[in-house]
Amino acid sequence: MAIWIIVTLLLTPWLWSLPIPKDLFRTNFREDVQEAKMNVTWKRGKVAPSDLTVFFLNWPREVVNQRLSVVMENLDLGNYFFAGHPRERVGVEERQKFFFFQFVLFIVGFASPHLNKYKKFLVVYSGLALLAVFIFEWRSFTQTLPLAVPFIVLMALGGRQIMTWQKKWRILFLSLAFLEVLAFGAFYIKGALR
């Protein structure tokens, strides 16, 4: 399994630029509360006065929603596998983190018979990572790096599984993967040279 993890790590574009996470554990809770209170005041000023407003429009809800939106953003698989798509509307940083063929590995990883061994780790780690995202609002390319771990493990399991496929399917998959790396490499090297 260690070999598969190393291979996956080497093939992951996310790590090619050697990202170093910054400001991982910084929170702006007071600022968030302040902003949420202002938003609520503005919204309440617009709706007809009602006793119910307080239940549906309050600052704790606003603060939680703000943080949940970051969690949701990190749950979007497209963020990891497809850069360049119009996600600017939510201000998501557009940089490819994994190849598309790794998405296939990721899915196949779920069907791996070896998954049971890593299930607890994956569930607990993912839960903690998402909790950290909720608290510290990680959203940048480098900040979200800790979230790569479950992906890498599942992809490694997927890679291992694919090697058990029939030869023709294996060759087809590897050829497509190679072509994707080649195509991406052309963009990447061009960009790096620039």
């Binding site: 698989l77 497209g78 497809f82 360049g84 798509h85 598309f100």
Partner: peptide, 17 residues
């Protein structure tokens, strides 16, 4: 791009947020 758009319809971020 098509696959990216297709996956958008299963994204928890889009469906729940």
């Amino acid at each position: 791009e098509f696959l990216s758009l297709y996956l958008h319809y299963f994204s928890p971020s889009n469906l729940f947020w």
